[in-house]
Design a binder for these strands. Structure first.
Length: 230
DNA sequence: ATCCAGACTA
DNA sequence: TAGTCAGGAT
């Protein structure tokens, strides 16, 4: 949930999500419709499917991995999240670099904006106070999120995104939102129910094709659209 | 108008 | 390495 999404926005959704799917088994067996209903508002809907897939992998595994290599095999867990789990849950002496920590390292002269991810990790490993990894990373992230922000430091993030308003991403999000609260819709019915402007059928058709390929939307036998069962 | 506790696929 | 993934806050 926290991947590219503000903590303040995640916190209420996290509680809602844990209430809806209290155990890994509940999440692993969740149907796509209720999963996306609870996820609605967080964005990047693919992450919801990936998180469920990770839950399915963990149920299959039967135990919770406690090393980076095994965690990286879970869908949606990259270098940041896999290390974060080991740091924040188990206080392991590892480092992880998020947008905040990267900015703090640069702002205080320990790194440069040009450094690669592995170079930043090398720098961070020299600074890590062993045995206090959990507190250390919380401190660095809070410092970056509240004091040495992107705005105050004028340090640009590594990745930027195009406009969201009137984008195809906005259209896809609107489509998923409509379908999660409706059973099945034809293309025309879908277009008429979208709550955003600028939605000509061609754009909607293209967006639907992409959503289908991602597994977020399914096409029925008679050419209508719906949220897939699983 | 920018950016947010990134990761996936090509 | 580059392009793509959603939506809200400021």
């Amino acid at each position: 949930m926290l991947q590219q999404t503000q903590v303040s926005r995640v916190i209420p959704k996290y509680h809602e999500f844990m209430n809806a799917f209290p155990t890994l088994k509940d999440l692993a067996e969740a149907d796509t419709r209720s999963l996306l209903q609870v996820w609605s508002g967080l964005g990047y809907n693919r992450r919801a499917l990936w998180l469920r897939e990770a839950a399915q992998q963990l149920v299959e595994l039967g135990e919770f991995p406690q090393n980076v290599e095994e965690l990286r095999k879970l869908k949606g867990l990259g270098p940041y999240t896999s290390r974060s789990i080991l740091i924040f849950a188990f206080n392991q002496d590892l480092v992880t670099i998020d947008t905040n920590i990267r900015r703090v390292l640069i702002a205080n002269g320990y790194a440069t904006e040009e450094m690669s991810e592995t170079e930043l990790q090398d720098v961070a490993e020299h600074l890590l106070p062993k045995g206090r990894s959990c507190d250390w990373h919380n401190a660095l992230m809070d410092l970056g999120a509240t004091v040495q922000t992107a705005r105050t430091t004028r340090i640009a993030p590594t990745s930027s995104q195009p406009r969201f308003e009137r984008s195809s991403r906005q259209l896809r999000g609107a489509i998923v939102r409509v379908l999660t609260f409706t059973d099945t819709l034809s293309l025309n019915e879908l277009v008429s129910q979208l709550d955003i402007e600028c939605s000509n059928p061609n754009e909607v058709r293209e967006a639907l094709g992409q959503l289908v390929s991602e597994g977020l939307v399914a096409c029925t036998d008679n050419g209508e659209y719906t949220i897939p069962e699983c």
